[in-house]
């Protein structure tokens, strides 16, 4: 006798049940990391415009988290926790980092700006790993241990 394939809803139910019975729990959250600034989330691009001066950007957003040595790039970074994940006896959190890179021309006016989103995760078990911007931690590009976003990947 041929078996009937499972419907997506049935599959989802089985997956949820398996998850719950095995001790897997995902708690959705939406808060900033305690060390993160809170004025550099998804709303930043609306505060930026091509042609703005460096002074205007600094007066709007405040001190950047990183800047290039020649001050032609300012980086604003905010980190949010989006979920707490518990899987058996292990726990961790999943988050997102907003990285806003503002680039200025030689006259100190905004030439372009872009926002990068990177998912981050941290496990609390012994074999924990932290996934981050490894290129941000390189010490040879900016004042604050950053590195050029395009060269660093």
């Amino acid at each position: 006798m041929r078996k009937r394939p499972m419907w997506p809803a049935e599959l989802a139910f089985v997956a949820t049940l398996t998850c719950v019975l095995s001790g897997c729990l995902i708690i959705p959250t939406d808060y900033y990391q305690p060390y993160s600034r809170q004025n550099a989330g998804a709303e930043v691009p609306s505060a930026l415009a091509t042609g703005k001066t460096r002074e205007e950007v600094l007066l709007d957003l405040g001190e950047p988290d990183r800047s290039s040595l020649d001050e032609t790039e300012l980086w604003y970074i905010a980190s949010k926790v989006r979920a707490i994940i518990i899987l058996g006896d292990r726990g961790g959190e999943a988050g997102v980092d907003y990285v806003h890179v503002v680039r200025f021309d030689k006259n100190g006016r905004v030439e372009l700006f872009q926002t990068l989103f990177t998912n981050t995760g941290e496990a609390s078990s012994d074999d924990s790993q932290r996934f981050e911007y490894s290129y941000l931690l390189e010490p040879h590009f900016s004042r604050e241990h950053g590195q050029h976003p395009e060269r660093g990947r």
């Binding site: 719950v20 001790g23 729990l25 305690p34 707490i84 518990i86 058996g88 006896d89 292990r90 726990g91």
Partner: peptide, 20 residues
């Protein structure tokens, strides 16, 4: 939910409250 999971949840909750 196992006792171990419960302990993990409790520890995480306490840690979050402390940090927040």
């Amino acid at each position: 939910m196992t006792l171990k999971s419960f302990r993990t949840i409790s520890a995480l909750t306490i840690a979050i409250l402390a940090l927040a």
